[in-house]
Write a protein that binds this DNA or RNA. Structure first.
Lengths: 285, 285
DNA sequence: GTTCCGCATGAATCGATAG
DNA sequence: ACTATCGATTCATGCGGAA
């Protein structure tokens, strides 16, 4: 079976209209956040964000199969000291369009953006909104099971409870036992909180989310040979993962530079894969 | 300085009207979830939740000092396979009342409720919505700093990258060095994700949230001698923590049994403190 | 080949300054 | 008054060079 990976250059609002209805199994995307990436997308003001996105989500609803899922990675900005409500409004407007708001996953970022302010802490999480067309969507929970428990933290907590210095030698000797214990145990289903690092750095083009993020959801919501769509492709993280997992994929981006780069990669002339890429470690602490 | 702890029995919609305006420094509460089955508060249906809560939040806005903060612990239920939107609507309606929606913290539960469903995973997070009356609210960030970095996880990742069994002995010998390294480092400010265990079990009355949750926020938003309010007191976790931190507190509950229990505890005749209570470990993994 | 140290780099946000 | 730009702040991570 041949796996297809297609790159379409242009504004996704228009290009999505050319895709067949009920043809996509899974949509994963991270649209430009309000007022971020001003150059590329003209800088959508928070107050106009919903109005800007709704025509796109309307098309996404059209192209998605009834059994498909749409995961939207998004987070609202701070404006005048408050969290803006455009994401909340977007959810309610998309429901009016016919979307089902099935779930909200949390991406708990291991390494969030630094900074200090008198009235707030660093933002260490983003929303992963799950939308569906029907209640009968495909889901393969067994594909994303995680090792049980938290070996490292248990060990750490025990250390802090006793006298550290005195116990170091004893801990050292007990170390192997714990490791084998942890490895021998079964796997469990994950939760709706994903604990992952923000990025896997490439040499030139950094991605806004790590490969482990689309990887987790593609395994969860699709089968081999299914069709994956990312209307805001960017550096092509979603397509790269889809291809490596033997899923067909379509990426749309308005930037020629991104499209060229991803096309070159598809042809195999340039491999931009992160070499020391870590497998996802969702829910492991 | 004497610390006062007051328990008021009754419907908080009414009882709140008897409190002075601008008299409370911090409000922390976890209102009953929308649920048609529950008897208390007349069994609020999700569709009527906002309508039910708004008169209460209006009173909370009145009694809170301009420098005060209101933390609302809440999570929307699943209804007909979808997340209900009453929390989103509530945020927007409270903004119309005059509240500022400053931030949304995430309580990432270490041990969430078990279970398995064909179309969703276990829910491991809840919202902690921060509302303020003005932008000039009190915040004492230094009181909630956490140890830096993530020693345990780094160690764990290194182990998985190499041959585990072969390296056990070597790791054992290098253990003390790493521990001292980790201990020597400074503390950093936390993020807006709190990673805490779900509950601290009492003998009879289990609390909705662990003591570490109000503890963290009371330390962050109040000083010794300030006034703390919980309009849905329940088993009195908020009041217990407030008292132990030398803050005055007021709790309101409609259930006589809860009120009696908390009053007895205040008098010192019954100590319901969790014996093996852990200190909070926000953002440590 | 390893390990260690130093350094640059982020989907950020606030407050001050300038137009 | 309201918007646009800029510097300061902060920390987990990966990279390169050195021991």
């Amino acid at each position: 079976m041949e796996i297809l990976t297609e790159v379409i250059m242009g504004d996704c609002t228009e290009k999505l209209k050319k895709l067949d209805e009920n043809s996509i199994d899974f949509i994963f995307t991270s649209p430009p956040y309000a007022d971020a990436r001003k150059r590329t997308y003209g800088g959508i003001h928070p107050d106009k964000y919903v109005y800007w996105f709704l025509p796109i989500s309307e098309q996404l609803l059209r192209v998605l199969k009834p059994t498909g899922t749409f995961i939207l990675n998004i987070k609202e900005r701070v404006l005048n000291g408050e969290r803006h409500t455009y994401v909340l409004e977007l959810i309610m407007e998309m429901k009016k369009q016919g979307w089902l708001w099935t779930e909200e996953f949390v991406w708990h970022k291991k390494n969030c953006y630094p900074g200090k302010w008198p009235n707030r802490f660093r933002d260490a999480w983003e929303r992963l909104l799950q939308f569906n067309k029907t209640k009968k969507f495909k889901m393969f929970q067994d594909n994303v099971m995680v090792p049980v428990g938290n070996w490292a933290e248990t060990r750490l907590r025990k250390l802090s409870e006793t006298d550290l210095k005195r116990d170091i030698s004893r801990v050292g000797s007990g170390f192997g036992k714990n490791v084998s214990n942890w490895m021998g145990r079964d796997k469990v289903y994950p939760t709706n909180v994903l604990y992952m690092a923000t990025q896997c750095y490439n040499k030139k083009h950094s991605a806004v989310f790590p490969e482990s993020l689309p990887e987790w959801f593609i395994k969860l919501f699709t089968e081999v040979g299914d069709w994956v769509l990312d209307p805001f492709m960017g550096s092509g993280t979603t397509l790269r993962v889809a291809k490596s997992l033997a899923r067909n994929s379509i990426g749309i981006d308005i930037e020629a530079e991104y499209c060229d780069m991803v096309r070159r990669e598809i042809k195999g002339k340039q491999l931009l894969l992160c070499e020391n890429r870590k497998s996802y470690e969702a829910n492991k602490h």
